[in-house]
Nucleic acid binder design. Structure first.
Lengths: 205, 205
DNA sequence: GGAAAAATCATGGAAAAAGGGGATATAGGC
DNA sequence: GCCTATATCCCCTTTTTCCATGATTTTTCC
């Protein structure tokens, strides 16, 4: 029986590209596509594919959240993350949320088909490049920050001083200072500049 | 006579998608594709298309630089920028470097064809969304920074202090301070935190 | 060759952040 | 009820950045 494949990606060209790549495959059945998270969920209420190829960026919701939601409602559906970026933080989050694979948009036809077949048979699949990024950055892990720390981090990024942040949050500036020190420690940075750069790269900001 | 179209994009799926979209068009001739800047330039030495669809992100060179280079060598070729991002800074830079149009990767078949036809007849074409972004951000313009300022900016982002940067670049720390002040002024920011955030968002870092 | 832009250097003072100590209160999980 | 994580608060010192104001030398471009 052919593997039922559905795709959720807001980039029309990518959808068209994958459709064109897979349309002549005997053991793959093209189920259609959605261009946003909402219509993806709506489709799943009617029919369930075996595999969803899912972009990590969608207009209404991040693929990371959508992935979690789909896996909660339909645990048997395999999800393969699809992204332009070979960025460890995204890959990690997708896998944490139940994705079975991750391929980059520069993947070849063979790689996509292999990914689909692998996840259907219960395995995990990472693009060659994605896999090596994971290895490289295994130690460069993403810090876990608290709600308050994130709040302070955003205000720092907006250019506010400790005193201004303190006023805004109705707390003492020494408290803000403490949060700031904890942020520096968690991100393993020496000063504001590298803190903001890292936080920005890791999508905290 | 059919319009000769070439595409330079490192994302195989996008190339495949556009090929699939354009292959049945009567007045468009598919010339092929390159997956990086180097092979694009190599191809152009052999043959020149009328239009190049060019990704703004390439492994070896940014589309922004490649665009400039191609226009210098082959002024008659029209270039259409191709990007996932609807980011004003990219669009602006592509247009400054001689691009005739800019379409997002979620564009429809009709939009792409219209873009190609428009630029061939000498016009400019911006995706609907790209155009509105340009209008929105007309005032939020990207600062023009010098080579040295960019160098200093990157070192600041890495967490180095003025003294460390001074040592590294063999200049006085007061000079670094001056560059720093100019950066703050150009980005219209009050401190390092917002400078780095903005520079990061605008892809300087 | 001359104008403009970029890069260099400087002084002095105010403001802010970084680094190193602590301490208390409170909520949630086991 | 105890432990841990989180959030709150404080002091002191040193380092770094920010601000104002100025000037000289090199590059770049027309």
């Amino acid at each position: 029986m052919a593997i039922k494949v559905f795709i959720t990606d807001d980039h029309y060209m990518v959808v068209e590209g994958i459709r064109s790549l897979l349309q002549h495959e005997q053991n793959i059945e093209w189920m259609g596509h959605a261009t946003n998270a909402t219509s993806c969920l709506a489709y799943l209420q009617q029919e369930q594919p075996d595999v969803i190829l899912m972009d990590i960026n969608m207009p209404d919701k991040s693929g990371i959240d959508l992935c979690k939601e789909v896996k909660e409602k339909y645990p048997s559906i395999r999800i393969i993350g699809l992204s332009t970026f070979n960025q460890q933080s995204f890959i990690q989050k997708m896998m944490d949320n139940g994705a079975s694979g991750y391929v980059l948009k520069n993947a070849t036809k063979e790689e996509i088909i292999e990914a689909i077949e692998t996840v259907v048979s219960g395995g995990k699949f990472l693009s060659l490049e994605a896999a090596s990024t994971m290895r490289e950055n295994r130690n460069a892990n993403i810090p876990i920050i608290t709600r308050r720390e994130k709040e302070v981090l955003l205000l720092i990024a907006e250019g506010m001083t400790n005193n201004e942040i303190a006023e805004k949050l109705f707390i003492s500036s020494t408290t803000v200072d403490t949060h700031r020190k904890n942020l520096l420690a968690k991100f393993d940075t020496r000063n504001t500049a590298s803190l903001i750069r890292l936080a920005s790269q890791m999508q905290f900001i």
